[in-house]
Design a protein around this nucleic acid. Structure first.
Lengths: 150, 150
DNA sequence: CGGCGCTAGTTGCATTCGCAATCAAACAGC
DNA sequence: GCTGTTTGATTGCGAATGCAACTAGCGCCG
């Protein structure tokens, strides 16, 4: 929310509240389906996309935009749930790999069926293909700036 | 994050991570300036825009997209900080008004100078005016759907 | 009027989060 | 090779969150 006169500020305000509302709904749908939260999904998805289904903790934190300490705890919970395992990193004794298990892959896939339906119904439905391209482009611009700088 | 083939899914994924990165930066800037968090700002801003600078707790929760119990605690903290006061609602004995104080208005204004700078530098800078209009339109569509339905 | 249900708000409790401190391994300079 | 510094990961602790239970006031219907 912001004093919305400038179109950019208005866009920002809507961006923020749309995000809050959408995430709220998606989370509700996951609870409804007795599935874990989006945090778990993001972590699993990041791993599944990585080489050999594994990533170092710090990279995982960067990728999922979560604090280091938080990704540690998240991985703890996922590990006790059998969705990931930790392995020591041969190249660097300080690092530890987080590796997705088959069970982890299976759960992510199951979550995706719910997640996908929500995205389409709540978001995609209201965005034309052209607009989607444009949104993606704008956000990619912003993301790459934020990731590169400082 | 999602299996990004469909442009809409790609847009969604970028939308989510851009949001996370942007909010992270804005929060950092507020901490840097020794100011409270965005939650506080949103609540104060909602109040400042309301008639007589006041709102009932439930309306405030809806407006700021925060759970009821959470808005109670948030208001507690703001109240002890002298930024808002609670007043009983004459029309409905169950409701309580949350009213922004002069100190609250002053703080919000001060936060806005920092917040605004961040929005412009991190977001607005990368969005053309036309694009901003389009983003605002898309998100407004989504928001009104989400608020009206169910 | 009296009881039943509904709504507004708060609170208890368990979970989660963020920050600072800690520990261990790597690395740089001498 | 030894020491000081930096980096990766974890942990302790206080703060914040979500959910469910609880209290109190409104309003309806008999």
């Amino acid at each position: 929310m912001s004093p919305a006169l400038d179109p950019r500020q208005r866009a920002w305000a809507r961006f923020v509240t749309a995000h809050a509302l959408l995430v709220e709904r998606v989370e509700a749908a996951l609870v409804e389906a007795e599935l874990p939260s989006l945090d778990w999904y993001d972590l699993l998805w990041s791993l599944e996309n990585a080489e050999h289904g594994r990533m170092r903790m710090a990279d995982l934190a960067d990728k999922t935009v979560v604090s280091r300490s938080n990704v540690t705890r998240l991985a703890d919970r996922l590990e006790t749930a059998g969705l990931v395992v930790r392995m020591s990193c041969p190249q660097d004794g300080r690092s530890t790999f987080c590796v997705i298990t088959d069970k982890g892959r299976a759960l992510r896939a199951r979550m995706w069926t719910v997640y996908r339906k929500q995205i389409e119904g709540l978001f995609g439905r209201h965005v034309a293909a052209r607009e989607a391209e444009e949104l993606a482009a704008v956000f990619e611009r912003i993301i790459s700036r934020l990731r590169s700088k400082t």
